[in-house]
Design a protein around this nucleic acid. Structure first.
Lengths: 305, 305
DNA sequence: AAAATCCATATGTTTTGAGTATGAAGTATG
DNA sequence: CATACTTCATACTCAAAACATATGGATTTT
C-alpha cells in the first residue's frame, strides 16, 4: 500500500538525484530509503529511477510520478490549511437564524456586520423564522445559531445564552390622550387598565404575551384583549388605526406604521423582553464560536437599548 | 506524520458515519481505527468528528477535510494511472532523430505515422540533424532514439540495431550514354571507372563515402572524385548538371532535381547503405520501446526497398 | 431495569520501518 | 593498471507502531 512516506521519500530522491544525499535531508539512513523507494516502485509497478554509478535519475514514468506526487502533497497541504482555518472559524459556512421581532434590535445587525468584516471568508446564511422553527432547525443542524426571545420549548443540548433584557414600551395610537407626553416620560402601567390591548401571540408556548399579562396582573388589573395579531407588524398597524394599545420591545420603536406614540412604562419591573443567543454548545463549529465572541463583544455597547 | 492510511480510514468513517461499520469495511478491528482517527485529529490539530451515542458525524472542519482527503486520493490515483500509462509507453513524450538521408526511406515515415496512430497520447518531437549530432543528443538524453546510417563514433551504452541494408544506385546525368537503359537493368560498376564521381562526404568518420570507394576498389578501379558535396541534395544537383555521376542509397531516388537517371549496380556485393535504429537499451522509456516495436513490425513489408 | 449499541481505553502481539554492517559495481586517482 | 572512493543494494537486527483482544463507560432501546 502506497503511503505518503513513499511520496515524501521519492520527492527527496528525485530532487537530489542522489539516494544518500536525500537520506541525509530526510534524516534517515540510506538503506531504509533505498528499500522504501524499491517498495514504491513495486507498488506503482514500474521503475521510477534509473540507477547510475553516480546517483540516480528519473525515468519517464518517474518524471510523471514526480509531478503527481508534488500535486498530491500540495492538495493535502491545502486541505490541512483549509481545515484548520475552518476549525478556527475563519472559513466555511455559518447559518444564523433570528425572529422577525429581534431583527430590529441593534445587536443583531451590528454583530452580523462586524462578523462579516472580521471573517469575510465565511459565507453567511441568514434565516428569519418563528422561534419554534428556529429551534427545530438548530436541533436538526440546519442552523448553527439563532437570536430569539424565550422559546416555548428548549430541545436537549441547546443552550440559551441571555444577552440582554430589553425594556418594553407602550404603543399608543396618535390620537390617544396619553400620547401627549414626551416619549421618555413613563406611564404607570395601571393607567392602561381600561384600555383594549392588541397583542402579538406566538403559536403555542409562553413568551412576551404572558409576560405582558403577568405584568398587568401584578400592576393590579387584568387587561382586556381586543385582538391577537399573528405578526408584530400587524399588531402595530392595528394600534396605529386606533383599535387599542400595545406593549412591545423597545427596539420595535423603529417600526412606525403611521404616527404611533411610544411611551416608557413605570411600575412594572418584570416587564422586559429578554433576548437570547441560542446554540448547541457541544457541537460548536469554529465559525459559530467566532460569532458568539463577536456578539459578546458587541454587547457592552448596546445593553439595555 | 499524516499518512494515506489516515485519509483512507477517515474517509471510511466519514462515509459510514460509524466507526465500527467502517472498521469492518476496512478489514480491521474497531479499536485501532478509533486510535488512528484520534491520531489524525491530533495531527490536523482539530476534531474532525462529533461523537454521538449512536455513531459519529463530521464537524465543519471534518467536512472540509473530507473534501480534501478525497481530492488527495483522487490526485494520487490519477498520478498512478498516468505513471503506468507512461511506463507502458501509451503516454508522454518521445524525441526521435534522423539524418536527412534516411528521412527518404519509407521505413521512417511509415513507422512514425503508424506510431502516431497507435499512441496518440505521446507527443512526438522530430529532429533532423547530421549523424554526429544525433549521437550526441542521444547520449545526452535529449533524444530517445534515432534513425541513421553508420555513425562515425558510437558512444558507450548505445545500441545500433541494424534495420536493413539498402541497395545503392548509380545516379547519372540525363544526357549520359549509360542513362539510356531501363532503371531495373543493372550497370557493371567497372563501367564507371572513367567517370567523375560526385560524392556526399560527412564531416569526419567513415560512412557511405568509404563504402563507395571500397566497392570501386574491389571492382578494380580507383574512382576519380570530382567534388565532395556537403549535402545529399547538393550532390544530386551537381549530377543533374552533368558534372559527374554519383552513387546513392536507393531511397534517394525520390529526389529528382531534373531528369537524373538511376540505375542499379551489378558486380558490387558490398555496395549497400545500412540503416540503423539507434538507442540506449539500458534506459529505454516505454514510449521508445513502443517505437522500436513499431519499427520492427514495419520492417518485413519494406526490407530491401 | 436490563440489554444492547457504540466509542474509548488498556494491554499484548505482530508487522514493518529504520539502523548497522557489508557487498557489488563503477569511477576517479596515483 | 591497481587502489581507493563513491554510491546503491542486500542481510540482519532492533524498535516503534499498527493491529488484535479484552474491557469500560455512556447512552439508547426494549
Amino acid at each position: 500500500m502506497i503511503e505518503l512516506r513513499h511520496l515524501r521519500y521519492f520527492i527527496a530522491v528525485a530532487e537530489e538525484g542522489h539516494v544518500t544525499r536525500a537520506s541525509e535531508r530526510l534524516g534517515i539512513a540510506q538503506p531504509p530509503l533505498s528499500q522504501q523507494i524499491k517498495a514504491l516502485e513495486e507498488a506503482v509497478g514500474t521503475p521510477l529511477f534509473i540507477r547510475h554509478p553516480r546517483g540516480v535519475s528519473l525515468t519517464d514514468a518517474g518524471t510523471r510520478f514526480l509531478e503527481g506526487a508534488r500535486a498530491t502533497m500540495a492538495t493535502l497541504e491545502e486541505t490541512l490549511d483549509a481545515t484548520r482555518r475552518t476549525a478556527r472559524g475563519e472559513q466555511g459556512r455559518l447559518a444564523v437564524g433570528f425572529t422577525s421581532s429581534v431583527a430590529f434590535h441593534a445587536i443583531v445587525p451590528a454583530s452580523i456586520s462586524r462578523y462579516r468584516r472580521l471573517y469575510p471568508q465565511v459565507s453567511l446564511a441568514l434565516e428569519e423564522s418563528i422561534t419554534a422553527d428556529l429551534m427545530d432547525a438548530l436541533f436538526a443542524g440546519r442552523l448553527d445559531i439563532a437570536f430569539a426571545r424565550l422559546p416555548p420549548e428548549i430541545p436537549p443540548h441547546v443552550r440559551l445564552e441571555p444577552l440582554l433584557d430589553e425594556e418594553m414600551l407602550v404603543a399608543l395610537p396618535p390620537s390617544h390622550p396619553l400620547a401627549a407626553g414626551g416619549p421618555e416620560e413613563p406611564i404607570e402601567l395601571l393607567r392602561l387598565a381600561e384600555e383594549t390591548f392588541i397583542l402579538y401571540r406566538r403559536p403555542s408556548g409562553p413568551g412576551l404575551y404572558d409576560t405582558i399579562i403577568a405584568a398587568c396582573r401584578s400592576a393590579g388589573f387584568s387587561p382586556r384583549i381586543g385582538q391577537e395579531a399573528p405578526r408584530m407588524l400587524a399588531t402595530l398597524s392595528l394600534v396605529a388605526s386606533g383599535l387599542g394599545v400595545s406593549i412591545i420591545p423597545a427596539s420595535m420603536r423603529r417600526i412606525d406604521p403611521g404616527g404611533i406614540a411610544y411611551r416608557r412604562v413605570a411600575g412594572a419591573p418584570g416587564l422586559v423582553a429578554p433576548l437570547y443567543l441560542i446554540y448547541q454548545p457541544d457541537t460548536l463549529s469554529g465559525a459559530t464560536r467566532r460569532l458568539i465572541e463577536v456578539v459578546r463583544e458587541e454587547l457592552p455597547g448596546l445593553a439595555g437599548h
